[in-house]
Nucleic acid binder design. Structure first.
Lengths: 180, 180
DNA sequence: CAGGACATGTAATTGGTTACATGATTGC
DNA sequence: GCAATCATGTAACCAATTACATGTCCTG
């Protein structure tokens, strides 16, 4: 799986607790990976057993100890190994397209309802991306922009371009189904 | 999960064996869902227990019996229920974007290699879609086209539009990384 | 006579979701 | 006083992958 590698890639930048990582996965990381806090705590435990991360306890008053994880040499080696290995693309899984095929069975109306729901969702998504684009990248990064900014910008662009593709498709689909 | 519903949606059209379904998932269905033969045989067993499908044995000489599954009333009811319930979109999981972030750690070269590999893959994908488009749909379906053709056409368009979005993004990404 | 299509599975493991569990602190 | 945030998990279940298993028929 890649959750291990997604977590390691965050630990490259700085040490973090399971809670910190959960917050990361709820905000920025959510644009390209997802994981629940249960999954994250479990995976951190597994990676500690493998010695990919090391653990430091931080006592706190009232709250339970914070468990702060850092990347070990083994973890960094594994991450580098994985990074240069050919990507394994997950096969597409698109529930909406199964449902589209069921328009004959249930009629076009309930399917159109769902397509319109998706349209709303995609509009919001695009608005979110645009907002971030304005906040963090006032213009397209130029030559002297730091590599980290370039990759962050490209992640944003990826979300934006696929959201637009989905938007275009939804318009086509709705138009065609409405004429049926 | 939706594998059950993907299978049921095929059984609406005609009864099929596990082997037949596997072939379907390797060809046309692969554009929007994926499953291995092990998974399909298992799921058919589970659905038989739930009485969503019924079973007919077809004796064959030499080969093991063919087990032919058909949709039951319970199965059809479940499928209709699911079809009109709001879609649950799976959160994005994009390994390539994790790897992009690792360009600082491993250098841009191995990442560019993978982006170029994806570029090749997407070109092939687009070629495949275009071939099917020519074979089955010589022109954009018009008013009197059967609903089944419309939904098949839209599935194809979905693949084509997202492949093009990926292509555009890959071009942007490669250009930016090459200038680093 | 070898390799691919036909035809069906089991078992082990890993990955992911859902439900349940605990308890202090901070802001409205 | 009530909800949200901080902070950590366990357990049960469901979904998916990988490895293993068997045997025939047909084509080159």
């Amino acid at each position: 799986m890649s959750l291990k590698h997604a977590i390691l890639s965050l630990l490259v930048e700085s040490e973090r607790s399971g809670y910190d990582l959960t917050k990361n996965f709820e905000s920025s990381v959510a644009f390209y990976w997802s994981a629940s806090h249960q999954q994250i705590y479990k995976t951190l435990g597994d990676m500690h057993d493998k010695n990919w991360v090391s653990l430091k306890h931080q006592a706190q008053s009232g709250k339970p100890d914070k468990k702060i994880y850092s990347l070990t040499d083994d973890g960094a080696a594994e991450l580098k190994r994985w990074a240069v290995e050919p990507v394994k693309q997950a096969a597409p899984k698109n529930q909406l397209l199964i449902k589209l095929m069921l328009a004959r069975l249930v009629g076009t109306e309930p399917i159109l309802e769902q397509l319109n729901g998706e349209l709303k969702r995609v509009y919001k998504e695009i608005a979110t991306y645009s907002k971030i684009e304005k906040q963090y990248f006032s213009s397209k990064p130029s030559h002297d922009t730091h590599l980290k900014n370039v990759t962050s910008y490209l992640t944003l662009r990826n979300g934006l371009l696929s959201a637009h593709a989905e938007l275009d498709w939804l318009h086509e689909a709705i138009e065609m189904l409405e004429n049926k």
